[in-house]
Nucleic acid binder design. Structure first.
Length: 365
DNA sequence: GAATGCGGGCCCT
DNA sequence: AGGGCCCGCATTC
């Protein structure tokens, strides 16, 4: 039997409390504490009923970043910025590659862009895409609240995401860049033909590592427990797990490095790269010295999809340092045309949306 | 073009 | 009143 939404929420709050995640303040308090002893490292994947206090100097906090796809929600309170989770875009066919990877795209934040996105096809099997809504907060999307107060930025999350992680913003951006580049190199382009001629002679081909990814390893992205609770109602492809016993987030920087003890499923290889404005602190490591969030040693996934040939890029979660190699490498990829592109271009039978498919970039052999 | 923030407005509880 | 959500507009990247 399904529990009532309220019960679920209460359980989660209690759990969070037990793990020390609940602070004495609430985002709606008239006055927020200013005698903050511990400032948190920026949390890239905040989940559950957590609260964080960031420095007002923290660039990520200033921009209200999250790797979840959060959209602005009007709460008619200009002092508190509220955002709600859009969920994740999955393949309507529930396809997966032979190595078990699922498609978890980042929902576009902009409504129009999201509608457009949903008209596109699955990059793996060309099936329809489906938006898996977040219902982690009593049946409603998880909400995040941001409030700037003095030298601090207070963050509060309500609800536990009941869906896999989407691509990070950077991964999605990188993917768009690739698509854009792909369009520039359309198959009919004389330049591309030339490149292909060269490539067919040299056999040159860019490495998979150089591209960002769309695919995720289920074990890396599917949150356990509560995750399935709501999901079961809506989706058959995602299975529940258990999330109890989730360790609390680390608090202070300095306290063993704010080494993120995020839930296991929630801290797998998301190294966020140097980016935007050159801030290498863009996402300070959730994982501190332990290096949980550092580039993992996993080899590039052996793509072997059963729907269609697999895409030539690594998985976002679990792939080799996906984001770090994402946009950053795009320039390298596309700058000099010599020695990249393949031989057949689009002979993969992608049908309706091949133009949108990143993995058309490099024909598979 | 897309992300983001803001605010008006509507609906529901 | 509070929460959720839609919409349009402006700004920024």
């Amino acid at each position: 039997m399904l529990k009532g939404a309220d019960d679920v929420v209460m359980e989660q709050e209690e759990s969070a409390f037990r793990h020390g995640e609940m602070a004495s303040w609430d985002i709606n308090d008239i006055k927020l504490p200013q005698d903050v002893r511990q400032i948190d490292w920026f949390q890239e994947w905040p989940d559950s009923y957590v609260k964080h206090i960031y420095s007002s100097e923290d660039k990520n906090a200033q921009r209200h970043h999250s790797s979840w796809a959060m959209r602005n929600t009007n709460n008619h309170n200009s002092r508190i910025l509220k955002k709600s989770c859009l969920g994740v875009v999955v393949c309507g066919n529930d396809c997966s590659t032979l190595d078990g990877k699922k498609i978890y795209l980042r929902p576009a934040i902009c409504d129009k862009a999201r509608q457009k996105q949903q008209r596109k096809c699955c990059p793996n099997c060309s099936g329809p895409l489906r938006l898996l809504s977040c219902r982690g907060h009593g049946g409603y999307p998880v909400t995040n609240f941001w409030r700037h107060e003095g030298q601090f930025i207070f963050f509060q999350s309500k609800g536990a995401h009941d869906h896999p992680r989407p691509e990070t913003k950077l991964e999605a951006e990188a993917r768009r860049s690739i698509q854009k580049a792909q369009m520039a190199f359309s198959p009919s382009s004389p330049r591309l033909k030339r490149i292909r001629e060269i490539e067919s002679l040299t056999g040159a081909m860019p490495t998979r590592e150089a591209l960002p990814s769309l695919l995720s390893e289920p074990d890396a992205s599917i949150p356990p427990a509560h995750f399935g609770r709501h999901l079961n109602k809506n989706s058959q492809e995602l299975t529940p797990g258990s999330r109890s016993g989730q360790p609390p987030y680390p608090r202070a920087r300095g306290e063993d490095g704010g080494c993120g003890e995020a839930p296991t499923w929630s801290r797998i290889s998301h190294v966020l790269p140097v980016t935007e404005g050159g801030h290498d602190d863009r996402f300070r490591p959730n994982a501190g010295p332990s290096g949980d969030d550092s580039c993992e040693e996993k080899p590039p996934p052996a793509y072997s999809g059963h729907c269609l040939p697999p895409p030539p890029y690594p998985a976002p979660q679990g792939g080799p340092c996906p984001t770090a190699s994402g946009a950053h490498h795009l320039r390298q990829l596309w700058a000099p045309p010599g020695g990249s592109e393949g031989d057949g271009g689009r002979h993969m039978g992608l049908g309706c949306c091949s133009d949108d498919m990143v993995f058309n970039l490099y024909p598979l052999r």
